[in-house]
């Protein structure tokens, strides 16, 4: 525990992420207004007064929209990383443990996936499926697993040569049992580190795609979509692009600091 507390990056990162989680979970209690309630009489009001962070062109309270927007970013980071980690770990262990043809096939697929830049792949999938919240979950859930897969494969190849695995094999343990009982527990650390950084990239990618207008659609309050509208008001209502961005940066910064901290915790040499 002391080791954790001394790790400043981990502490600071976790605090930032925790703050955003609290915002997301208690959004209905914290948000002062309805995030999708229009009120044209109070449109484009600067920060201060009744609306702490001002209002947008439809008179919606920006603070409330930002608070609800944290739900989308966090849900997305969490869900996509669950899917990606699952795919990455399964394929990585298969490739590393069995080697040979299985390895060639999986690594071939991984290399091809890596040859298409993540944002371009995300764009392509969204182009086919059309914009929408569920679609962006799918697009990001199946594109970011390659890194996990590569690291898990390398770790598995190292671990399977260890004596305790050889002993288990000699005792007749099934491959399935060896994978679950002996290999996966050993790779939890690196996988968690990658998943933390991965959540940061997923949130960033969602914001980017929504900013380009092919992600989450209005009136759903997503930070990226809010910034996309904010660009139009850069001359007249700059608060519409400053604040959603600040929250976005805080979330991603928190996750990146946490990732750095976790990496130091598990492997100070890395």
């Amino acid at each position: 525990m002391r080791k954790v507390l001394k790790n400043k990056q981990l502490v600071l990162g976790s605090m930032l992420v925790l703050a955003i989680i609290i915002l997301a979970v208690f959004a209905p209690l914290i948000a002062p207004y309805d995030p999708v309630g229009n009120n044209l009489l109070s449109s484009l009001q600067p920060p201060g007064g009744n609306h702490i962070l001002g209002t947008d062109s439809l008179g919606r309270d920006q603070l409330s929209r930002i608070i609800y927007g944290s739900r989308i970013s966090l849900m997305l980071g969490l869900t996509t990383q669950l899917i990606n980690t699952l795919i990455g770990v399964i394929l990585g262990v298969l490739a590393g443990y069995f080697g040979g043809r299985v390895d060639n096939l999986i690594m071939g697929l991984t290399n091809v996936m890596l040859s298409i830049p993540a944002i371009i792949l995300g764009l392509t999938i969204m182009a086919v499926m059309g914009p929408g919240l569920i679609n962006i979950f799918i697009a990001l859930g199946f594109t970011l697993w390659t890194y996990t897969c590569r690291v898990v494969r390398a770790q598995t190849m190292l671990i399977k040569e260890k004596e305790f695995v050889k002993a288990a094999e000699a005792l007749g343990a099934s491959s399935w049992r060896i994978a679950i009982k002996h290999i996966i527990p050993q790779i939890v650390g690196p996988v968690l580190v990658i998943a933390t950084f991965g959540a940061a990239s997923a949130i960033l990618l969602e914001a980017s795609l929504s900013f380009l207008g092919i992600g989450v659609q209005p009136p759903t309050p997503s930070w990226g979509a809010m910034l996309s509208r904010g660009r139009e008001y850069i001359w007249t209502a700059p608060w519409l692009m400053i604040y959603p961005g600040l929250f976005l940066v805080t979330t991603i910064l928190g996750l990146n600091l946490m990732g750095d901290g976790l990496r130091d915790y598990w492997d100070p040499k890395m």
């Binding site: 910034l227 850069i234 692009m241 400053i242 961005g245 976005l248 991603i252 990146n256 750095d260």
Partner: peptide
Amino acid sequence: SIFGISAPRFWIGLMLMY
């Protein structure tokens, strides 16, 4: 630099433009 890695490019762009 950790800030620079975490800030989305489109937001940096908007801020610089502003």
